[in-house]
């Protein structure tokens, strides 16, 4: 075994390690549970897990504010400074496929997931 072969093996090992590390990173970053996606004017600005309780302030154009809460496997908008507050009245959502919309602020909070029990719509 000569020096070059050894350095090649080292390179190969290094590459394999980098590949494995990348793979692990990608797998860890993926959450199999339901994700909360916050869109402002169509663009995803935040992504949370539905299983971790939190409060978050969504800032929108023209100083719009929607206060988001995640708790107990549900997400809802607690308050907002939009004119009609229809988004707050939409209450809690908890199933992949559901969404809360605030048209005046261009905010959509949606639940997405690979959950095979995801809903396409809710009739009420």
């Amino acid at each position: 075994m000569n020096k070059r072969l050894r350095s090649d093996l080292l390179l190969l090992g290094g590459l394999a390690a980098v590949g494995l590390a990348l793979f692990a990173l990608l797998s860890l970053g993926r959450d199999d549970g339901v994700q909360v996606l916050v869109r402002v004017d169509g663009v995803v600005t935040q992504r949370f897990s539905l299983s971790e309780p939190r409060s978050y302030t969504i800032q929108t154009r023209d100083e719009g504010v929607n206060e988001l809460r995640i708790d107990d496997g549900a997400v809802w908008l607690e308050s907002a400074n939009c004119p009609d507050c229809l988004c707050v009245k939409q209450g809690k959502i908890r199933y992949a496929g559901e969404s809360i919309i605030c048209l005046p602020h261009g905010v959509v909070v949606e639940l997405s997931g690979q959950d095979e029990l995801a809903l396409d719509a809710v009739t009420q």
Binding site: R94, Y95, G97, E98, A118, D120, A121
Partner: peptide
């Protein structure tokens, strides 16, 4: 709710029926 056809992968649309005593969106 009204749906056209199936989902593109051929699976059926899943429509939740609101639980009358729970908050909107709970089925």
């Amino acid at each position: 709710v009204q749906c056209l056809g199936t989902k593109p992968d051929g699976s059926l649309w899943r429509v939740g029926i609101q639980d009358p005593w729970k908050t909107e969106g709970e089925i």
